[in-house]
Amino acid sequence: MLDPALLVPALLTLGVFSILYRENPVFRCIEHVGLGMAAGYALVTIVFNGMLPRLVAAARHPGDMAAVLLALPLMAGIAFTALRRNALGTLGVTIAAAIAAGFAVPGLVQNLILEQMRATMVPVGLSSDAGFDSLVIAVCVLSTMAYFSFTREPRGIRGLAAITGLYTLMISFGASFGYAAMSRITLLIGRFLFLLRDWLHLVN
């Protein structure tokens, strides 16, 4: 219980939980220490693990075409981190955005559009459970998309589809809320297990 390796984390945990009682400077101090350390940790990881190994490898083979080509993004990256808008920095951002966008296009078309459409276009019917479920899903998918169609006023069959889409979305959001609640509670259980088991040894 008095082992510093457990006492410090336990006191920090209790310090964070103190905000539940009321606003206090202890919580604010811990909050800012956490933010600073998180930024410092991320900076070290990004620089030492994310950038340096590749740059060192490139520096060891300066004649290599791949290493030479790395000079442009490196300069653009340095210009970008200068935090003032400049042409080289803008070039770096543009290159990164264009490459990321280009890489995404085939996957978006294949996995978010075509595969999802293929999974919807399956035999439907009222005679079997599977056929009926497929029919419900197909109708609800179309209705959900109709709900987000704003080109014309939703009247008649369009209005009915939009309402069905809204209710479908609400069912889905309800399910997502249930899972999100589960997730938050799980994280709290983790902290309580630390306090009760690891620190106070009240739980085996």
Binding site: Q116, S172, A175, S176, Y179, M182, S183, T186
Partner: peptide
């Protein structure tokens, strides 16, 4: 994580 679980069912 639970929060995004249901969205991956599709």
């Amino acid at each position: 994580g639970g929060g995004i679980g249901p969205t991956f069912q599709s």
